[in-house]
Structures are given as structure tokens and as C-alpha cells.
Amino acid sequence: MPNLTVSDGTARSAVLGRPRRPPVDVWLVDLGPDESTLARAATALTDAELSRADRGTPAVRRRRIALRAALRCVIAAELSCTPSRVPLSLTPAGRPFVPATVPGARSLDVSCAASADLGLVVLGRGTQVGIDLEQVGPWTPDTRDEGWLTDREAGAIAVLGEPQRARVAARTWTVKEAVLKASGSGIATPPRLVDTGTGEGSERRVGRWHVVAVPVPVGFVASLATSRRVARRRRPLAPRVLGHGIWSLEKGVRS
């Protein structure tokens, strides 16, 4: 069993003593690792997680393993344990969480999202978090009939030019999903009932949630919903790339 740890700034901060940690950390994850990396990542998962991954097509399996391993690595670094030992539970709605009774996990909240071969993991300290990521697909007029846009959202999107439409629609979707994930409601609430306002604005309020855009590679949009305001002036909330750190699992930086 390799020692799975994150070998980047998080670990360093442990060495340097604990500077005040930000309320959220966002990680970008490459969900298309090669087979040997994938095999190492799989060692971090429980049997139940692996069997769920195995039910998927090869691409789905790869993504599930990579994203769950990333989630475990991020939490492991926070709790100073190995990823396979992270006590991850699921709410009845299927959302992962670390039981509050686990030492150090009291105010911890996590959320993750995947689209194509890109994943996002967010860890919140003292704030609830929900994150969603969407690859921007081509706009079709069908979208507005799918019933998840409010009239106002659909109206605002309709006056846009072609490239913006697709992007704003994807953005709108991620805002709704991020809010529903953060609230724990998930699919129980129809997305149409989350009114987002529209546009590409970098920060907005949706009900009691603060929603910010997360910078992601071209072709994707992502949104993060939090119960506390986490955006900092002039410092966009840039995700760190977990791709290299996580896949050099055996390095085991932590003592």
C-alpha cells in the first residue's frame, strides 16, 4: 500500500507551522491518467467505491477512480492521514462527507464535480461548499425547452450571440448545480427553482449562497457555492492542479 499524500503547498504549510488557511481550497484534477497511475489511485478506494467504479464503462470507471482518489487525497492532507483511511460517508442523498466526529473534521465540507476528463474537488473550512463543472457544449434551441431555465434566464440568454449563449447556459447550469450540491438537496429540487440571475458575473448571491466562478481551462465553466463569502478582492479563486501532486503517490512527503 503506497503512502498516498499530497506533495505540494499543503504539506509544506504543515512543516512551516500553520499559517491561517483559506476558507476554501479548490483542486483541478486530470481524470484521464494512464493505467499504472490509475492502479495506484485505486488503492486509495474502498471496496464499495471500487465496485461502484467497476459498474461504469471503462471511461466512467477511470473518472470515478481518479476523482474519488483525488477527493480522498485532499481530505487526507487536511486530516494528516492516508487517503485510504479517510472516513468518507455518504448522506442519504449520496453526497460524500467526513463525519464531524472525526478529529479535525468538525467544520470540514467537501464537494466534487466532473465533466469529460476534468475534475474539481473543493474543500471548505467552516463553510458549506458545492461545486459544479460543465464542458460548454454547442447551444441548441432545445436547451430552453428542457425546463431548467427560468423565463428570465431564458430571456437573457436569447438576446446573446451564439458563442455567449452556450457559455452562459453552461454557467447557469453550474450555478444551479453548485447551489443544490451545497444545500445537500441535490436532485430533490428541480433546477428551475434555483433562480440564478444570469450572465458571466464573477460573484453573485443566490438565496443564502455566495456563488463564484472558478477559473477552469478553456471550453469548461465551473461555479462554487459557499455558505460564507470566500472570494477575495483582486485575488481570483484559482484552483491548484492536483494532477502531478496526486499521481506521484508513493513519494510520501509527509513523515
Binding site: A158, V159, L160, G161, E162, Q164, G197, T198, G201
Partner: peptide, 16 residues
């Protein structure tokens, strides 16, 4: 913020 959004939309919404 919404005003900025709207202006942005108006400027970029070329073929409305």
C-alpha cells in the same frame, strides 16, 4: 453587478 452583466450582455450580444 447585474448592471455590469447587462451592459456586458448588450455589448456582446451581437446577433440578438
Amino acid at each position: 453587478a447585474r448592471l455590469t452583466e447587462q451592459l456586458h450582455l448588450r455589448l456582446t450580444g451581437e446577433h440578438a
